[in-house]
């Protein structure tokens, strides 16, 4: 009898649980807080590199009957380089998908570490974009940001972001290597040079860009070290004195987003450059292709770099390659 009672009780409990679980909760529009509110997202992805930009979108809002926004300020722990600004516009998306900006006040004013926009219109909600140009002083350090919004009723609210680590690597975009002229690449300088410079500074030349189209084999766009076997430098007269045996490892799917600026979410970070294995690496990379690249270690072992190939051109009159480089000093 006791057992039956227990079973009945358990069944009832289950039934109640089931009914409770099936109850529909009607959606209700949340009631907005009557205080000044804010929120932040970081828009830029990937390693933070000196000379690059960290981008945020900072939003603040207050109930219209309580007041309006009066200013937004961003304070960085390390002052941004020239080009740091807080956009004075918020954006809507038009029916065609384009961003349409609406100014909330005059362009931002940067004083030392602080960048601010003063609202001149009647806005109770807006999202402004902040672009922090990473300065040389921040290399290898961390940087934090304090976003602050003020409203006309005297309220102030802040949002902290960071610490954000600034990498040690350097980056250069869109160098143009030209077969026969500016075909000498210096990793230390991150520049292309011509034969006259190479002759005067043979120790600086790490790679030579060549375009050849021999009859029997595929050579096309190639990057070779000065020490590469003569067969890998066909019909090329190298200036005297070039002797760097640069180590080269071909790569194909490393489409770093910061170098390529295309859709792939791949980033070459300091740790990738530092830990890349160059044991038994050759001193030539024949037939490299657009969206491919080469990992490079300079002959003196001072730099590891990744050279991404943005585009290649081989028309009747133009044989060239556009490259972008990430480089890390490891010694």
């Amino acid at each position: 009898m006791k057992n039956i009672r227990f079973k009945i009780l358990m069944s009832l409990t289950l039934l109640v649980l089931c009914l409770g679980a099936c109850k529909d909760k009607e959606y209700a529009i949340p009631t907005a807080l009557d205080k000044l509110q804010n929120d932040l997202i970081k828009r830029s992805l990937g390693p933070n590199i000196v000379g690059g930009t960290i981008e945020f979108a900072y939003a603040a809002a207050i109930l219209p009957e309580k007041g309006k926004l009066s200013s937004m300020t961003v304070e960085a722990s390390i002052a941004g380089a020239t080009g740091t600004y807080l956009d004075n516009r918020f954006f809507n998306t038009s029916s065609s998908g384009a961003d349409v900006g609406t100014a909330v006040g005059d362009p931002s004013v940067t004083t030392g570490k602080s960048t601010s926009v003063t609202y001149t219109g009647n806005f109770s909600a807006a999202t402004l974009r902040y672009f922090y140009k990473i300065p040389e002083e921040a290399r290898g350090k961390t940087v934090t940001f304090t976003f602050t919004a003020k409203s006309s009723n005297g309220e102030t609210i802040s949002y902290q972001s960071g610490p954000h680590e600034i990498r040690n690597q350097d980056m250069v975009l869109d160098l143009v290597a030209k077969d026969g002229t500016e075909c000498y690449l210096s990793i230390a300088d991150m520049k292309m040079y011509d034969a006259a410079f190479a002759t005067a500074n043979p120790g600086k030349i790490d790679l030579i860009y060549l375009y050849r189209a021999p009859a029997n084999v595929t050579y096309l766009h190639s990057l070779v070290a000065p020490t590469a076997d003569a067969s890998y430098k066909p019909t090329f007269t190298m200036p005297a004195g070039l002797s760097n045996r640069t180590k080269i490892v071909k790569a194909f799917t490393v489409r770093d987003q910061q170098l390529s600026r295309i859709q792939y979410g791949v980033f070459v970070d300091d740790v990738d450059l530092r830990t890349k294995d160059f044991a038994d690496a050759p001193d030539f990379a024949i037939n490299v292709k657009a969206e491919g690249g080469v990992w490079v270690q300079t002959a003196d072992g001072v730099y590891n770099a990744y050279v991404y190939i943005n585009t290649v051109t081989n028309t009747a009159s133009v044989k060239e390659m556009k490259i972008s480089i990430k480089r890390l000093k490891i010694k």
Binding site: Y219, F284, I286, N287
Partner: peptide, 9 residues
């Protein structure tokens, strides 16, 4: 294999 293949790797 292709001309210019890195045979060690």
């Amino acid at each position: 294999v292709l001309f210019g293949t890195d045979l060690k790797n």
